[in-house]
């Protein structure tokens, strides 16, 4: 019945669990991530080292930003929604992006995407996506019945509406314009705009610092609204701040690599399993590292084993979707 009493020194730190201590788990994940990144950067370079290295470095930068944004965004999103199977894409972030790109092509023609790429477009795009979230959130929480579930539901419905509108507009495009557009709407790590990287990296860094400062507060949010409030956490304010940060992260990731639905889910799920704890101080870095391993390691394998370098995000989304379904069926409940 009773568990063996542990010495005071051991009980004073983190609760004792089977298996490796969390520091070792993080170190292993860190080592694997570094190995994937180095292998991707340096192995099998043919021809000019400088050309290949520079190109790969840009791509690794993109991967880092995308892994960070999706992993951190999803873990935080799951915490504030009290649900371990949701990803921020349920809020319709991606469909806002898709609609914007589709509208651009539909109104100005296929050439517009390449011409308008640049800082102003990235900033406008981000502001629109963040503005969309804040509008939705502000509107719902100004009412008395505002709850996170109503917010999610409205997000889902609006996302569907935007997607249908995009689909309709895409039917009206000429095949060549549609071709240009669809290249934008699939994840594309290899052809990410390098000019976006400094800003996206800076945004991730700032968001990362803010989230890190709140890592313990995020833990209390896992106890639910009432228990968190009892512990002195301003629940509504934390939710607003977190949703704002998530929309920033997802906007950055989407602008760089296109919409992704299941990548964040996979990193978060694996992170919880690998960490063996719910504490954000472990789960957040773990999710980022797993994301980086998946992207850098995956790209390395795709390029040099399967000779299909452009397919990584498609494969990740496919496998992620399969894992998602398997997870749902195994759990048998939402």
């Amino acid at each position: 019945m009773s568990e063996k009493r542990l010495p005071a020194a051991a009980t004073a730190t983190a609760p004792i669990r089977k298996g490796l201590p969390v520091a070792a788990r993080l170190a292993i994940a860190g080592g694997l991530a570094a190995a994937s990144a180095l292998a991707f950067l340096f192995l099998f370079i043919e021809g000019s080292f400088e050309f290949a290295f520079e190109r790969r470095l840009t791509m690794l930068g993109t991967m880092t930003v995308v892994a960070f944004a999706q992993a951190v965004g999803t873990v935080v999103f799951q915490t504030i929604t009290h649900n371990r199977i949701l990803t921020p894409s349920i809020m319709g972030f991606d469909s806002v992006y898709i609609l914007m790109q589709t509208l651009l092509v539909a109104v100005f023609g296929g050439g517009v995407l390449a011409v308008t790429d640049g800082m102003p477009k990235l900033i406008t795009q981000t502001l629109l996506m963040v503005g969309f979230t804040m509008l939705l959130f502000g509107w719902l929480f100004s009412g008395r019945k505002g709850s996170i579930h109503v917010l999610l539901l409205v997000g889902v419905v609006l996302g569907l509406a935007f997607r249908s509108l995009s689909d309709f507009l895409q039917r009206l495009l000429s095949p060549s314009e549609y071709d240009v557009l669809s290249a934008r709407l699939f994840g594309r790590l290899s052809s990410a705009e390098p000019g976006y990287l400094p800003l996206a990296g800076a945004v991730c860094l700032i968001v990362g610092v803010v989230v890190w400062q709140r890592r313990y507060r995020l833990d209390t949010l896992l106890l639910g609204r009432d228990a968190a409030t009892n512990l002195g956490v301003a629940h509504k304010r934390e939710l607003t701040v977190m949703l704002l940060l998530i929309s920033l992260l997802i906007a950055m990731s989407t602008a760089l690599a296109g919409p992704m639905t299941f990548f964040g889910f996979v990193t978060a799920m694996l992170a919880y399993q690998m960490s063996g704890t719910h504490r954000h101080i472990v789960v957040l870095p773990m999710a980022f590292l797993i994301g980086l391993i998946t992207l850098a390691g995956g790209q390395f394998v795709m390029e040099h084993v399967f000779y299909a370098s452009g397919m990584l995000t498609v494969v990740i989304e496919f496998l992620g979707g399969a894992i998602f379904l398997a997870h749902l069926l195994r759990k048998g409940t939402l």
Binding site: T11, P15, Q78, T79, H82, N83, R84, R215, Y216, R217, D219, T220, L222, L223, G224, D226, A227, N230, L231, G232, V233, H278
Partner: peptide
């Protein structure tokens, strides 16, 4: 204050739960 029903997303141990009680004093 303690409510009647408590639903937690995380799977926590008794000690972890009790440690949360110190949050207002030490912020984690």
């Amino acid at each position: 204050i303690l409510r009647q029903e408590n639903h937690f997303t995380a799977r926590v141990t008794v000690r972890e739960l009790v440690s949360f009680g110190r949050f207002p004093h030490s912020r984690g």
